Amino acid sequence: MALIASTAAHAACHQPYGPAGDWPTHHVFDDGTDLGLAFKYQYDVDRFLDDGGRFRDAHTNRRKELGVLLKKKGVYSATAVFDFQARSWLDVYARVQTRALFGTDAGAIRVGYAKTPVGFEGNTGTGSTTFLETALPTQAIYASRRIGADWAMLRPHWLVDAGYYWGGDLQGDSDGHMAAARAAWTPRRSAGDVVHLGLSASRETPQGSTDGRGLHSDPAARLRARPEVGLTTLRLVDSGKLAPVDSIDRRGAEALWIGGPWSVQAEYLDARVTLRNGRPRYHADGYYAFASWVLTGESRSYANGNVGDVKPTGAAGAVELAVRYSELNLDDASLPGGREHDWTVGANWYINRHLKLQANYVRARSDRRGLVVDPDVVEARVQISL
């Protein structure tokens, strides 16, 4: 509790708005056009134990995101978000509903820079995750954002999302092409009563690049993960640079059950990197599973094929407890990238819809090329969002 209080004190010094009810968020014009701002601020504190001196305790900003939103219900939506902490663009896209274009609902078409569909936890908003950081396999295998176009169809008991990406990312990296698709069956989909089962797959063909000095770099891939801690650059497992790469195939399987205050979520991710020059294909995979219980009786929210935060109903907010196991295998016959498995225990206090406190204890265990590193981590976060 002292760690949470310390984190809250740091965040309070940076809080840009007054009480939650006074925060300006958007303006709706007479024709229904909605213009608004999106803001997310996170301050983290990390403390490492039994790490052999390899990691450094840290406390600093985790995210400082500011975005502009423009939408008209049933017609279009557009957004542009920048993270001033990471100094990188996040979602920058426009989406249009086909009903508005053709008079028939055939889904939505999106063009711009957005998350790719292979992965469940990776597509969850960074402000809505049950734990402070994503699980090991999500970090290593999920492809994140690319420039391209996708089409999504959402129905009461199923959803499909397919995209083609051709422009790398807005940071000037990840050149190449990717085709990706995700499908899910939702036989139960109502507030506090959800069953979601999904599959996804993609193929990426990276491209080499030439810098301003005329130096050429072969197309490459690298799979690695932090020990589910955000304020460190150290990885316990790492494939190293794989090059030259011909293609990267990713696959995923996902499951979610929400029953009132209880929830179970699990995901398996797999990556196969095909190398050139007759070198053997590199294979990595991993999975996680977690359970959560909202002590105050609310449920995790679910919409558009993904989960969101618990929405508190009482004056004292909502409290959630969760436990997660994750495992990642980057060892392959051709390259020993290491193995790691983590246990994480978490507690979340949703004070209101704009203020959230989180605390995690992570017990990480890894083995890479005979080097065993087993840190324990205590971490906490204050999040302010609108």
Rank of each mutant, 00 (worst) to 15 (best):
L234W: 08
L136K: 03
A271W: 01
D367N: 03
D30Q: 13
S200N: 04
V377L: 09
Y113A: 00
L37R: 05
E228I: 06
K241W: 09
G18N: 01
G212F: 02
G240F: 14
W158F: 08
L159E: 08
Y282I: 11
R47T: 15
D270Y: 04
P280S: 07
V195T: 10
A284Q: 01
W23F: 03
D211V: 08
I351V: 15
L355P: 10
W166T: 00
V194R: 01
A38Y: 07
Q139W: 15
S88M: 13
A179L: 05
L231M: 06
L215E: 08
A220C: 07
R279W: 08
A225M: 04
R353H: 11
L90S: 07
A347N: 08
L49P: 12
G286D: 00
D51F: 11
Q15K: 06
A114D: 12
E133R: 15
E121I: 08
V28F: 12
R224I: 12
Y142T: 03
S174F: 07
Y17S: 00
D31L: 07
R110W: 11
Y350S: 12
A181Y: 00
P24L: 00
S6P: 08
Y17I: 00
V294C: 04
G148Q: 03
H341K: 03
Q42H: 06
H341P: 02
A108F: 10
L215H: 10
I351S: 14
L37T: 02
D285K: 01
K356H: 15
A143N: 03
L66D: 06
H10G: 03
F131E: 09
W158K: 02
A255E: 05
L136P: 06
P156T: 07
G278V: 01
L154K: 09
A9S: 11
R54V: 14
D50C: 10
L236C: 05
P137F: 04
